[in-house]
Structures are given as structure tokens and as C-alpha cells.
Design a protein around this nucleic acid. Structure first.
Length: 780
DNA sequence: GTAATTGCGCTTTTT
DNA sequence: GCGCAATTAC
């Protein structure tokens, strides 16, 4: 037998060796499910000689997909894995749809709307319908529509379903059905799909176009699905259609870790699976290889409080390990301080590296206190789940140009850029355009193209025409040049890059760098032979745009960096860390106030607690704060009810009552007031009396982030300043810069397309100058 | 048509 | 305490 099988236990081996027919693997936390999945795929390829092109593996995150592919490659020891279809539901379906979109009436270069775009469309639609946007908040409406889509409920069904209508009537939002309908039509008109559309359009494609169905059924002879407990009905139905021909479908999941029901995921899919296929092989993986006995005991104990679950017993041969430490602090800031102190202490005492620690919490808003204290202690950290690079304003603005070039029907993008940078096409004009577009049933772009016909004149007309000519120019350029060159052209012609470059505030500098990074990423994309989900393929702009909208924050950061990881529990699913801090175990926060109204909601919160516990390999801290700031105001919180569910014998409560008292160093650091009244008391007092004099002086130690860009010593460009041709610039030459003054080139680097000169300025020190954007006059 | 200032509502989790 | 939207002034 093959070498790769030797590291598997009996059940794992059974799961790997099962070749044809439906199989469900119920895999407890830490039971090696990724190993089983990857080995199974490798075995199909290496032993059964299944062609990589015929295997489809679906995951929930790009990260999981990438990791899976890497591991398969490693097992196989060759490049065959490259041709596998491994990716998220969304990215795989988007790719398929890009080839088939025309059948559904979409352009093949359809735009993908992220949540922001979708909410923007909703906002316009709600306004156009003259509905009150205080009542019909885009957020609320979006969630409602999204749930409908994930359950494959279309606008027509939504409008006639009695219970849905009752619910909407009761919440005083009876018009959601009409909004849903208008929204769907508008997205279609814009040639755009939102995240949910990627699933339901895929479903419609397979359902309504037999030739497509046949094609993909035939292509995907083996289908594997990770995190099956998190699939929603739309995903379920697509899988069912795809798998109908061969029925070689392998699902892996753990009902105890189902934490996405808010997104329409349903445990029913696991139960239903056994009914949909005859003769399903079910394999339970119950041996945990990750955590200590103590951690696992607590996890088992917690989850046993849930009624609805598939019976299983998770066990381990690992050592008993330490008790779980329970820590109470006075405030959220103290909690942050405690965690940072403890990390520091553990690093020294047990030789841990930064990468061994994770701080996991219920909501993203909790990250702040941890960030601050880690920064103060000089501990490197990575926060996952902040604003994604691609959702930064400057990036979205820039990308909007590319979106319009690729798909002029994309009204959201068009509105975003039509007056950015300011070109004299203001709100009135835009409103008019939208109105004309709606009344004539054409796109906004078509209105712009025929601007004179709609009565635009004078400066406005001229601006519109210039804009149209510019976009058309980019489009024809796209025929001949690659994505990077078009993007570069946009940056240059619109002056966006230059404008950002001239903004010398810290934020401006950052924005400039971000746009540079965007350009680099486009360049990299065009130059890399194969893209992430395998097929050597489309290097076009629309493929790039698709990729970046489906990329999440987690995909942009290096998970292997030697840093403490900060993220929500949701984001931590599937990961493991030697030391875990489960933070904010308070009523109203965890379980969250939004999720304590039904048994189902509460059980999902409990599963979330189960997930956070089972992330820990050897050490686990559970922390909570007496009070924390919730948008400006201090709120008191009770300890989480989940804490009471932990059996005493697994707990070390020695810190629980006294805040950080036992941590040695900290007690002495507390102020007298703090020591008398309890840790954190002075923070509350500060609210009443203002900061003490000692605090008003700058006593913040060590790391102080630069508040503003280093001062530039003003330089008045010479009268005869004419930018030179710098294509042959060499180190050693003397140059003049409009702002920085005179200097000497010390180094030339960067590529031919994007040369960068390092210049030592006489007055302003060393600067890196991008020759494509900055103008230099060669002096000698 | 644009730039600056105030005000309001928001935070649950994500592809 | 922040980001977006409406209001106001230019």
C-alpha cells in the first residue's frame, strides 16, 4: 500500500479508501479531517488514476482551498494537483458562470458586487421607490434578501408566501418583497451578481440548461465538500444537481461546529444527505489529535448542553494537560492588558513564539483593546477581519474604473467614478442620468454616450463627452494590452495617482502606497502563469476583478508570520494554536444579545464557544470583563452563562476574582486608586474628573505611531523646472524634485515598467521616488 | 457645483 | 467614537 496511508488510523483509512458512492464523514474537532480529505484526493489520483480535471473540492475559505492544494501536492510529489478544481463555492461558481453567463442573459464579464456594492444598489432602489430609508435600512433589507436567496426563494415566491409576508408586515416592512424584486432587476440590468447570486445563478444554470448540467456533471466525477455543516440550501441543491450523475460525493462536517446558520446554513443538510442518496457510507472520526484531555473534556461537557446533535464521543490519547484558566478583569482595557502581559510572560517562561498565541473573540469591535496593549508591549500581531485591502476607499475608487471599462452596465461603479476626480459632473447631473436611464429603460452609460440627445449642454456636456471618450479609449486599449497596462493608463490619465502622491499627510501617503500596491497586484496577476484555483487561464481584467472581490481579508495576510493572531471565532474555524485566549465571555456579548431569543440561536452561540475551546492545543485562558465600552459608553456585564457550564474540576479560578493580581508585575503598576477601588476604577474616575496631571504629559512608552509625515523642507522649484526623461537615469546623477529639492541618486531599482530611484536629498534625506509618477529634472 | 460642518446611528458573526 | 449624509455656506 501507499506510504501516505501509514499515518492514518483505521477510520481515517476507511474514509480515504472508499472510492465510489456517497460518503459522509462526521469529523470531530481536531480529528484530522483535512488530512483525510487531502489524502483521499491524492489517493484517487495516484492509485485510482482519476484525472485531476475530474475532481471538484469545495471549501468555505480561499485559505482552506490553498492549504488543501498544497498538501495534496506534497503527498503526490508532482504538479498534477494544479489541475484540480479546488476553491470556495463562490470562486468556483463564479469561474464557471463566467463561461456560461450569456445563457442567463448576463455579460460574461459580469461584475461581482460585494456587500457594500449590494447595499448601495439597495439604497438607490429604496430611494427610487420613495420608501423611508430609516425604516428600510439597507442593512436590514440586505440581510432579509440574502436569507431569501440562500434558501432559493425568488422575488415572486417571496411576495406570495404567507408567513414571509406576515413577518414583514409585523416588522412594519411590508415592501421588502417589492424591494427584493426591484433589487434583483437592477442587479441584472447592471450586469452584476452579488455573493448570493453566485450560488443561485449557478443553480438556475444547472436547473434550466440541460447542456450545462450535463457538461459539469460529466466533468466533476468526484466531488468533495469541506465544512459541510455550513452549507445552505442553495449550495446543497447545486451539489445535488452536480453529483446526480455519478453520486461520488464526499462530505465532511461536524454538526457541533455549525456556526453559520445566520447565513442560511442548516444542519438539515447533514440529515438530509442520508435520505437523498441510497446507501450512504457514514464514518465518524472521534479521535482528537489536537488538544489535551482537560480541554477536550470541557469541550465535550459544553456541547452536551445542546439538544440537537449527532451523537459522538470525542476522545484523545494526549496528556491531561493544565487546567483551563478563568480570568476576570475590571474592564475591557484591563482584559487587553492582562492578555498582553500573559503572552509576554508565557514567551519568557515557556519559550513560546508570537505565532503560538491566538486571541479569539465574538465581535470584531473587541479587537481594539488587544491591539493597543500588544502594541504597547511591543508584541507583533496580525489582526484578521479588519477592513479588507480591496474595500478601502481609494482602492474601490480605482477599481471602479476598471469595472466600468470591463462592464459599462455596472452603474454602481459608474456613479462612483463619474465625478472622481472632480470633473464637473455633480449630483444633479448624475440624478438626471439615472432618471433618463430608468425612463428609457437603458443603462446610465448609454445615456452618457448619447448625452446631447438628453439635453445636456455646455460645460456639463463637454465633461460627459470627455469622460465617455476616456472610458472608450481604455476599452479599446484592453483589446491590445494586458490588464496592468490598462490600469496604469487609468491611474495616469485620471491623475488619481498623482493626486494621491501629492497628498503628504500620513493618510494620503498610505493611500498612495495602497494604490501602488494595487497596481503591483494587477501586474503580478498578469504575469503569473496560473491563478489560484488552478486552471491556467484567463489573465484578463475581468478575471482579476472577480478574484479580488472574492478575496477576503484573511487571504491577504500571512498566517505563518511570527505574530500573535487576533480574529473572531468565526474566522478561527479550522485553525489551531498552542495557546488560546477566549475573550469577552460576558452575557450580551457572548452569548450575544442578538442571539438569545430562541433555543436555536443560543445553541449556535454554544457551538461557537465549543469551537473556540477546541482551537487550543495545550493552554487555554478564558477571560471576561466586568465592564466595557460600547460605543462611547461604559456598560456593565454579567459573566457569560457558558462559564457556569464548565465543570469546576477542569478550571483554575485562582485569577477569577482578583483581576490581574496574581500576575506579579501588574499589581505594583496599578495606581493607589486602582488598588483601593479595584483594577480599572481609575478609568471610570477619569470619565468624571478628567485625566490626572501625570497622564497629561506624554508618558506613553516605547511604540508611538508616527502622527504625521515627516516635515518636508519646502523647496521652490527652479524657474526653468522641466521634467527630464528619466528612463536612463543612473545612480550618481544629480536631480531636482519639485518638492524635495536637489539630491543625488543613490540607487536604481524596480522593474523597467516601474523604475524606482532612491534619492538622497540635500534637505529632506533619503526618499524612494517612483519615476512613473514623480517628475525629476536631471541636473547633471 | 463644491467644500466644510454638524448630526445621527451604529456593532454579530462572512463569502 | 467614527463614518456617512444632510445641511449650510461659498
Amino acid at each position: 500500500m501507499h506510504e501516505y496511508l501509514s499515518g492514518l488510523n483505521e477510520r481515517q483509512k476507511q474514509a480515504v479508501l472508499h472510492k465510489d458512492g456517497p460518503i459522509m464523514i462526521v469529523a470531530g474537532a481536531g480529528s484530522g479531517k483535512t488530512k483525510v480529505l487531502t489524502t483521499r484526493i491524492a489517493h484517487l489520483m495516484a492509485f485510482h488514476r482519476v484525472d485531476a480535471f475530474n475532481i471538484l473540492a469545495l471549501t468555505f475559505t480561499n485559505k482552506a482551498a490553498r492549504e488543501m492544494k498544497e498538501r495534496i501536492e506534497k503527498i503526490l510529489g508532482n504538479a498534477d494537483a494544479r489541475n484540480l478544481y479546488v476553491g470556495t463555492f463562490h470562486s468556483v461558481f463564479a469561474r464557471i458562470l463566467r463561461g456560461e453567463a450569456h445563457r442567463l442573459g448576463y455579460p460574461n464579464s459580469f461584475t461581482i458586487y460585494d456587500t457594500d456594492d449590494a447595499k448601495g444598489v439597495l439604497k438607490t432602489v429604496i430611494n427610487e421607490m420613495n420608501l423611508d430609508d430609516k425604516l428600510y435600512k439597507p442593512n436590514v433589507v440586505y440581510n432579509r434578501i440574502s436569507s431569501a436567496k440562500n434558501a432559493l426563494v425568488n422575488p415572486a415566491e417571496y411576495a406570495v408566501d404567507y408567513y414571509i409576508q406576515q413577518e414583514d408586515a409585523r416588522s412594519n416592512r411590508p415592501a421588502i418583497a417589492q424591494i427584493y424584486d426591484a433589487y434583483a432587476k437592477r442587479c441584472f440590468k447592471n450586469g452584476a451578481m452579488d455573493f448570493d447570486d453566485l450560488l443561485i445563478k449557478m443553480y438556475e444554470l444547472l436547473k434550466n440548461f440541460p447542456e450545462s448540467l450535463h457538461k459539469f456533471q460529466h466533468k466533476f466525477k468526484y466531488i468533495l465538500i469541506d465544512e459541510y455543516q455550513d452549507t445552505n440550501p442553495a449550495q446543497y441543491e447545486v451539489i445535488k444537481l452536480l453529483a446526480a450523475a455519478h453520486e461520488n460525493v464526499c462530505v465532511v462536517g461536524d454538526d457541533a461546529q455549525s456556526i453559520y446558520s445566520f447565513r442560511g446554513a442548516t444542519i438539515q443538510n447533514i440529515l438530509q444527505f442520508q435520505k437523498d442518496y441510497e446507501d450512504v457510507t457514514v464514518i465518524k472520526l472521534e479521535q482528537n489529535y489536537r488538544s489535551t484531555q482537560n480541554i477536550l473534556n470541557v469541550a465535550n461537557e459544553i456541547i452536551s448542553n445542546n439538544k440537537n446533535q449527532i451523537p459522538k464521543e470525542l476522545w484523545t490519547e494526549n496528556a491531561e494537560g493544565e487546567k483551563i484558566r478563568l480570568v476576570r478583569t475590571m474592564s475591557d482595557n484591563e482584559e487587553g492588558k492582562f492578555v498582553a502581559d500573559t503572552i509576554q510572560e508565557q514567551k519568557l517562561r515557556n519559550h513560546f513564539s508570537n505565532r503560538d498565541f491566538a486571541i479569539l473573540y465574538r465581535t470584531n469591535a473587541q479587537s481594539r483593546a488587544f491591539e493597543e496593549s500588544l502594541r504597547r508591549m511591543g508584541i507583533a500581531y496580525t489582526m484578521f477581519g479588519g477592513v479588507s485591502f480591496y474595500s478601502r476607499k481609494e482602492i474601490k475608487d480605482f477599481v471602479a474604473y476598471l469595472r466600468v471599462v470591463v462592464n459599462t452596465r455596472d452603474e454602481e461603479a459608474l456613479k462612483r467614478i463619474i465625478n472622481y476626480p472632480v470633473r464637473g459632473i455633480g449630483k444633479t447631473t448624475i440624478d438626471k442620468c439615472v432618471l433618463f436611464a430608468n425612463t428609457h429603460n437603458i443603462s446610465m452609460w448609454e445615456v452618457l454616450e448619447q448625452a446631447p440627445r438628453f439635453g445636456f449642454k455646455g460645460g456639463t456636456l463637454e465633461s460627459i463627452e470627455n469622460f465617455v471618450v476616456f472610458i472608450k479609449g481604455c476599452q479599446s486599449m484592453l483589446q491590445l494590452k494586458n490588464a496592468y497596462e490598462v490600469a496604469f493608463h487609468v491611474g495616469k490619465q485620471t491623475n488619481i495617482v498623482k493626486e494621491l502622491f501629492n497628498d503628504k499627510t500620513t493618510e494620503g501617503l498610505q493611500r498612495y502606497e495602497n494604490v501602488q500596491e494595487l497596481l503591483n497586484s494587477i501586474k503580478e496577476f498578469t504575469e503569473t502563469p496560473s491563478n489560484d484555483d488552478g486552471e491556467v487561464g484567463d489573465k484578463g481584467l475581468s478575471a482579476y476583478l472577480q478574484q479580488i472581490t472574492l478575496l477576503t481579508d484573511a487571504d491577504e495576510k500571512d498566517p505563518n508570520a511570527d505574530t500573535v493572531k487576533l480574529m473572531t471565532i468565526h474566522a478561527a474555524k479550522g485553525l489551531e494554536f498552542p495557546v488560546v485566549f477566549a475573550a469577552g465571555l460576558e452575557e450580551m456579548l457572548f452569548p450575544n444579545a442578538m442571539s438569545i431569543n430562541t433555543r436555536e440561536e443560543l445553541e449556535e452561540e454554544r457551538r461557537l464557544f465549543y469551537v473556540v475551546i477546541t482551537r487550543a492545543k495545550s493552554k487555554l485562558w478564558i477571560t471576561y470583563a466586568n465592564s466595557r465600552y460600547k460605543f462611547g459608553q461604559l456598560v456593565q456585564n454579567e459573566p457569560s452563562r457558558f462559564i457556569e457550564e464548565i465543570p469546576q474540576q477542569y478550571l483554575d479560578r485562582s485569577f477569577a476574582g482578583g483581576g490581574i493580581r496574581n500576575q506579579g508585575t501588574s499589581f505594583a503598576q496599578g495606581s493607589a486608586f486602582d488598588r483601593m477601588r479595584g483594577f480599572g476604577a481609575s478609568e471610570q474616575a477619569e470619565k468624571l474628573y478628567g485625566p490626572p496631571p501625570s497622564k497629561r504629559k506624554d508618558t506613553v512608552p516605547a511604540y508611538v505611531p508616527p502622527k504625521s509625515a515627516p516635515k518636508v523642507v519646502e523647496h521652490k522649484p527652479s524657474q526653468d523646472f522641466v521634467p527630464s526623461d528619466t528612463s536612463n537615469l543612473q545612480a550618481g546623477q544629480k536631480v531636482e524634485h519639485q518638492k524635495f529639492g536637489f539630491g543625488t541618486v543613490s540607487k536604481m531599482e524596480g522593474s523597467t515598467h516601474n523604475p524606482v530611484a532612491t534619492v538622497l536629498f540635500d534637505l529632506n534625506g533619503e526618499k524612494k521616488i517612483m519615476l512613473n509618477y514623480a517628475k525629476l529634472r536631471i541636473v547633471e
